[in-house]
Every structure is written in structure tokens, then in C-alpha cells.
């Protein structure tokens, strides 16, 4: 992947696939480190699947027997001296707190750090593809916090206007652009 924002898009698709109703994308950044957390309230993974999930030959996909999403993120983090960890709990075991959280820590000053890239397009693409899922995006930097919460948008839009409406997507894109530009 050329940008970490593409890894984020890819991993968040897993959350949608896991029937999450809320996906949180949290970026915390200081001068040296970037921590990316993708947290969902989806169906979670069994302990057995969790143990094997960063193995490329472990996937839920039926079209083929490899899944590269998590291995690619893990590689991107570890090649900077960082780490990737996954916590997950299934519905049966955690009826009130089921879901999965993937956390990747990157050392930004490392030569092999992949730039974050166009994270706004990632957020907009996710909303476009899964307008019934709620997304919280929060990017905390030393000088600012950039935020978007589709639950607040949905409250204003009501049930009549889908979040995938082009005018709504444009609003979301501009809302994020404005916050980054300030």
C-alpha cells in the first residue's frame, strides 16, 4: 500500500464485513509516533481465529485462501520499529462489548515510515460504501483535533437522506478539509 490511509480503508472494510454498526478510526500523532486504532462493535473473532489472523493464509474470504489486509498493516508498522496488536471478543463471550480493535503504532521518523496520505478520501469512501454504518473519525495532532461523527450528521439528516448522497459526501469532505487547513 502506498499510503497508510489505504491500509485504514482496507481494515475498516473488515469491520463493515463483521456487521459493525459503529466503526471508530482514531489517529493519535505526536512528533515521533503515529498510532492508528480501528475499533468496531462487530461480531468479533474467536480466540482461535485471532491467533492466526496476521497469517496471510488465514481469511474468512471464500473466493480464495489468502487475506493480506492485516499482514500488510503489521508489516507497515513493524518496518518502522512499531507494532500491531489486535483485541477481539465475540458476541457469545462479550454480549455488551463485542467487536474488534486493531492498533498499529508507527515510528514516524523511521526511513521506512509510509506516509498517512489522503485520509479524507478514506473516510468519504467508507461512508459512501456503507451509509448505514456509523463512523467516528478523530485525528489528534499536537496542535489540533480533526473530527467527524456520522451519528451527528445522521441526526440532522433524519431517515430521508442517505449518508451516501453526493451532497452529503461533499459536505463531509469539506468539513474535514476545513479542519485540516485551519
Amino acid at each position: 500500500m502506498k499510503e497508510l490511509s489505504l491500509n485504514i480503508l482496507d481494515i475498516a472494510q473488515n469491520s463493515i464485513h463483521a456487521e459493525a454498526t459503529l466503526v471508530e478510526i482514531l489517529l493519535a500523532e505526536d512528533a515521533d509516533a503515529l498510532t492508528i486504532t480501528i475499533k468496531d462493535n462487530g461480531k468479533g473473532m474467536s480466540a482461535e481465529f485471532l491467533a492466526s489472523v496476521t497469517d496471510p493464509f488465514s481469511t474468512t474470504r471464500k473466493t480464495r485462501k489468502v487475506g493480506m489486509g492485516l499482514p500488510l498493516l503489521k508489516l507497515a508498522a513493524e518496518q518502522t520499529g512499531g507494532t500491531m496488536t489486535i483485541e477481539s471478543c465475540e458476541r457469545a463471550l462479550c454480549p455488551d462489548s463485542h467487536g474488534t480493535a486493531v492498533t498499529a503504532v508507527f515510528c514516524k521518523t523511521h526511513l521506512d515510515f509510509t506516509p498517512l496520505g489522503d485520509v479524507i478520501s478514506t473516510v468519504v469512501s467508507l461512508i459512501q460504501g456503507a451509509p448505514d454504518v456509523d463512523f467516528v473519525f478523530r485525528h489528534t495532532k499536537p496542535d489540533r483535533t480533526v473530527e467527524l461523527d456520522t451519528r451527528a450528521m445522521r441526526e440532522v439528516l433524519g431517515e430521508d437522506v442517505p449518508l451516501s448522497d453526493p451532497a452529503v459526501l461533499m459536505w463531509a469532505r469539506e468539513a474535514l478539509e476545513e479542519q485540516y487547513a485551519q
Partner: peptide, 23 residues
């Protein structure tokens, strides 16, 4: 197609171009 392979190959800007053009 927006799986890992599609995203890695450049599907995100293609998706956004389609959404924009249709709008």
C-alpha cells in the same frame, strides 16, 4: 472492487472519480 487487492491497485481514486462524475 474494494478489497485489499483493489485498494492496493488504486481503487479508491477510481471510486471517488465515479461518485463525482455521476454527481
Amino acid at each position: 472492487g474494494m478489497a485489499t487487492c483493489g485498494i492496493a491497485a488504486g481503487a479508491r481514486p477510481v471510486l471517488n472519480a465515479l461518485v463525482e462524475e455521476v454527481a
